[in-house]
């Protein structure tokens, strides 16, 4: 049951004219206004949450792109280094083993292919890890933001309602609460 339904229950202030009832009615109106304000705060909170989520998503994508570019660059460098190293090795072998040049060339080509395959696999694995990491960070941020909102909104609403009530409203609410208490077995 919502707060409004709880507080507006089972009475029509227009039919009751006692000061207590009038005060209760006024209190209910104030609470209804505060509830409305709470809803507006809630709507704003949803917007903030949505904006924050978009901003986080955008930042994550940007970061991912930068990392991917860096990783690709690094891979290209590694490939280049591997190629140079193997070519040097090949040249040296050519000089040392005059009779078996063709077989050495074939082996060096296979090695180069293997290195390239390994680099591509490493790149894919790193990308996967990076995506999982960014998603974790994003979830954590959203969770923290939502938890803060969940904690803060009741505090704001309580302050608004508490400040809005006049002494007579407070007294009427206590009378009503004590009426409820009468039906419970508190003193056993």
């Amino acid at each position: 049951m919502t707060l409004l339904k709880t507080l507006m229950r089972a009475r029509d202030p227009r039919k009751n004219v006692s000061p207590a009832m009038a005060a209760t009615s006024q209190a209910e109106q104030i609470i209804a206004a505060a509830t409305q304000e709470a809803k507006e705060i809630l709507n704003r909170a949803h917007t903030i949450r949505s904006d924050a989520e978009s901003a986080l998503q955008e930042a994550a994508e940007k970061q991912q792109l930068l990392l991917q570019q860096a990783l690709e660059e690094e891979t290209r460098n590694l490939q280049k280094q591997a190629h140079t190293a193997i070519s040097t090795m090949l040249d040296e072998l050519k000089k040392e083993t005059e009779g078996a040049v063709s077989s050495v060339v074939t082996d060096a080509g296979k090695q180069l292919d293997t290195v390239q395959h390994q680099l591509v696999a490493t790149l894919a694995l790193e990308q996967k890890k990076m995506q999982a990491g960014l998603e974790g960070v994003r979830r954590k941020k959203i969770h923290s933001l939502t938890a803060t909102l969940q904690k803060e909104i009741p505090v704001i609403v309580k302050k608004v309602v508490g400040r809005s009530l006049a002494l007579a409203d407070h007294e009427a609410l206590v009378r009503e609460a004590l009426d409820d208490a009468k039906h419970d077995t508190i003193w056993t």
């Binding site: 707060l3 809630l42 949450r49 969940q150 609403v157 309602v161 508490g162 004590l178």
Partner: peptide, 30 residues
């Protein structure tokens, strides 16, 4: 906030508006 909390023999019986606000079911869920 409004209403009363009754304390008796270490137990609290909450008849407050504050308690009702705490159970308000339209707050965002985590």
């Amino acid at each position: 906030v409004g209403g009363v909390i009754v304390g008796w023999h270490g137990k609290r019986f909450d008849y407050s508006v504050g308690a009702k606000l705490n159970t308000y079911d339209e707050f965002p869920e985590v």
